[in-house]
């Protein structure tokens, strides 16, 4: 929390001291120019959740959010490894983005009207369709959220979960006592110590937390109800439409590659393919990349270096035991639908 306040105060000072953002020459995007000049994309992540962003034993950030950041680095700089991950908390993430400490966020952030309307930021993609869930101790024998009347629930403050639970309990005429703690590990410890009857956050986060318990995972049960829509995605600053386009279309590129059966291993074999969309995708025809202000082989770099949407999912989320469900392509019953690349 000290960190939160400090960074918020820092952001205020930064906004107060520095003059209006300089309009760039080169690409027409201040953010892209800054990334080029730095030779590095600075991406805000959580850095604490397995499957989303968590450093491995070598200190390399792993997870779907980390890989989504890498796709943007591959598209802009042509090299997915030219990236610096900045861990952010639920409360300092927006200030970090607003003040320019990070170029963008892939931090399990829910797309809501309030956040887009008043924060000076906007959402460029949805890399995970999620919903608020509840985790309880198996020993309590609770089988449904409806049985949680009067329960104490551990929640992180400043999240959309916090608002979703309050709404849900009110609609169902149930009462609950919230326990709110800033620090993710503090709130998880409080749940494990029995301070709360239930721990609530996005269902994916709960699955990730449960899998981190290793052999003790069966002691915790994920309740079947998902009480809200939580589309998680990339957040960028408003006013830099070029960069917004790049982030959005980089995500679409991973979907289009999956639709066309291109992945990091097979993409080279498509060089001789004659389908126009695939040729445009690979930068062999047209000037899709140039229109975005990028190298024409940007999409190829993304898939070759990081992978398509299915690969990113299988690498990071499948080990948590979460089925792909609505996160599948629209052709397989999911919500992921990319507009055509032409």
């Amino acid at each position: 929390m000290k960190r939160t306040l400090a960074s918020a105060a820092g952001a205020i000072l930064a906004t107060a001291l520095f003059a209006a953002p300089a309009m760039a020459q080169g690409s027409g995007s201040a953010t892209i120019d800054a990334i080029m000049k730095r030779g590095q994309l600075v991406c805000g992540v959580a850095g604490l959740t397995a499957g989303f962003s968590l450093p491995d034993s070598q200190g390399v950030m792993r997870g779907i959010d980390a890989d989504s950041c890498r796709t943007v680095a591959a598209a802009v700089l042509g090299d997915a490894s030219k990236i610096r991950f900045v861990p952010t908390t639920t409360t300092n993430r927006f200030t970090m983005l607003q003040s320019g400490e990070v170029d963008m966020l892939y931090r399990s952030t829910t797309w809501t009207l309030g956040r887009e309307a008043s924060l000076g930021t906007e959402f460029a993609s949805i890399n995970f369709y999620d919903g608020t869930g509840f985790l309880v101790k198996t020993s309590t024998n609770v089988k449904s959220v409806k049985e949680l009347d009067g329960a104490t629930v551990c929640v992180q403050p400043g999240t959309s979960t916090e608002l979703a639970i309050a709404d849900y309990f009110r609609v169902n005429k149930m009462k609950f006592t919230p326990i709110l703690m800033q620090d993710l590990s503090e709130i998880q410890n409080a749940y494990l110590a029995g301070r709360c009857d239930a721990y609530s956050t996005d269902a994916s986060g709960l699955a990730s937390f449960r899998s981190q318990q290793g052999a003790k995972a069966p002691e915790h049960t994920l309740l079947p109800e998902i009480i809200s829509k939580e589309p998680l995605g990339a957040m960028v600053r408003k006013g830099d439409d070029k960069f917004f386009d790049v982030v959005r279309w980089t995500y679409f590129a991973t979907l289009i590659a999956e639709e066309n059966g291109m992945d990091s291993k097979t993409i080279d074999s498509f060089a001789a393919n004659t389908v126009p969309e695939i040729r445009r995708f690979l930068g062999l025809e047209g000037d899709m990349g140039k229109q975005l202000g990028l190298d024409n082989k940007w999409a190829y770099n993304v898939i070759k270096q990081v992978g398509n949407a299915a690969e990113i999912w299988e690498r990071n989320i499948t080990p948590l035991g979460v089925p792909r469900g609505i996160n599948n392509l629209w052709t397989k019953g999911g919500l992921n639908y990319a507009p055509p690349m032409r």
Partner: peptide
Amino acid sequence: SIANTTLNQTGQAIEGI
């Protein structure tokens, strides 16, 4: 704690602090 949550939900850090 409550002001912190408020400034985060509304995004108005300067007013909150």
